[in-house]
Design a protein around this nucleic acid. Sequence first.
RNA 1: GCUGGAAUCGUCUAGUGGCAAUGACAAGAGACUGUAAAUCUCUCGGCUUCGGCCUUCGUAGGUUCGAGUCCUACUUCCAGCA
Length: 380
Amino acid sequence: MKVEFELIKTDRATGARLGKVRFGDQEYETPMFMPVGTQATVKTLSPEQVKDCRAGIILANTYHLWQRPGEDVVAEAGGLHRFMNWPGPILTDSGGYQVFSLARNKRKDITEEGVHFKSELNGASLFLTPEKSIAIQNALDSDIAMSFDECPPATADYHYLKNSIERTLRWAERGRSVHNNPHQSLFGIVQGGPYEDLRRWSAERTVALDFDGYSIGGVANDDECKDDMYKAVEYSTPYLPKDKLRYLMGVGEPVDLVEGVMRGVDLFDCVSPTRLARHGNALIYGVKDAGISGYKEKRINLKNARFKRDFSPIEPDCDCYCCKNYTKAYVHHLMRCDETFGATLLSIHNIRFLIRLCEQMREAIKADRFLAFREEFLKS
RNA sequence: GCUGGAAUCGUCUAGUGGCAAUGACAAGAGACUGUAAAUCUCUCGGCUUCGGCCUUCGUAGGUUCGAGUCCUACUUCCAGCA
C-alpha cells in the first residue's frame, strides 16, 4: 500500500511539522525515528522487541539483501515483511549510501551507467544501476523505496557536487521509469552538500520528477560538521512540497533530530542507537553531575568501571524494558562479559530514547511550544 | 634422595650478549550519524622541561664495555628415576 501523508499542523514559531502517515490501515505519527535493520534484522533485537519500542517504519538495505540472500530469495519467501516477520512498514535504502561508504578502499567506480563495486564479502565484481536498485526493491516488496543516488563525501567540492547532482537526477528518472510495484512508494533524494543554490536546484529538479516523498541525503557523512548538516536541511526543505514526507537520511543523534524537526523534517533513521548500544553506550538526557563540575552528559558508556556497583536504572524516567527492569550494574556486567543481552538491552533503550524524543517533539508541536521544547532540550 | 627442565610487567607468553623487554588476554579510556562496525583507536613499570632519566625478567654473587640472556650458589615449581 502506497504511503499516504497528511500534514496535521506546523508549529507556529518554527517549521516543525506534525503529521500522519498511513500504510493501508496502519497509521503512525510524524516526526518519526526509524530504526535500521540493514540485513533484514535490527541487530540483536527481535521484531517484538522493536515493536515494544513503539517503532513504526524500519529500514532495510538493497545492497546487502541483494548480495545475501538475494532479492529472489526474499521474493520467494513472500516479500521482506514475511521473510523477516515484520508486519509494520519497511523502507529500503537504495544502496546509494554504499557507493559512498565502500569508496574508502577504492572499491567502487562511478559511471553514468551505474556503480561498479567490489564485494566486501568475497571480492566479486558487482554492478549496481538505478534500474537494478529499483528492481531489487520492487522484488523485496518494501513499502517505501529510495531512488539510487550518489552520496558524495563531505569533502566533495562544488564542481563535483554539481555533476553528481545532475547524475543523481538522471538516475532518479531512470529508476522511476522502471518502478513497477503498485503498492510501493518511491522517494527522490536531494543532494547538494552545504551549498544553498545546489540544494535548492537539486530539490526543485527532484520535485519536478514528482515522487511520493523526498529525502535529504549526503548530510551524515564523514567529517561533516553539524552546522553544514543543518544548513543542508534548511536549504532543502523550503523547496519540498508541504503535502509530502520529508526524510533526513542517516540522521541521527538526538540533537540532530530536534534540529531537523525544527527545519521541517518528518522522518529520520540512524544506525547510531544500535551501534552505540553494541559498543556499550546508552543515550541519556543531560544529567547534572552534582559531584564535581556540573558536567552534562548526553551519553554514557556502561563499560566504564564507575558503573560496576551502580544499581540504578540508566534513566529512572524511561519507560523502556531495560530501564524498567535492569540496573546499570547489570548492563555493565553483561557488556564486560560480551553477552549479547547487554547489546539487546542497550539497543532497546537507545531506540526507545529516540522514539520517545519524537513523541515529545510531537507533543510540543501540538502545543505550539516547539521552540521552548528545543531550548529545554539543548539546556538539559 | 638422584637426574633433567623451568622461574619475565594482573594472567599466560616471546626473548640465548645491546632490551623498559614480544604477543594475547585482562584492565583503563576514546571514537562511532541512509551499518564492510557486537568494530576500530589509544594507554597499560615510575618520573619527565619529551631530550631523556630512574627502577625492572625468583634471590644473592660473578664474567663482560654491556646480562632477562653466560657462570656459581641458593629458593621454589615441574618431569623422570628411586
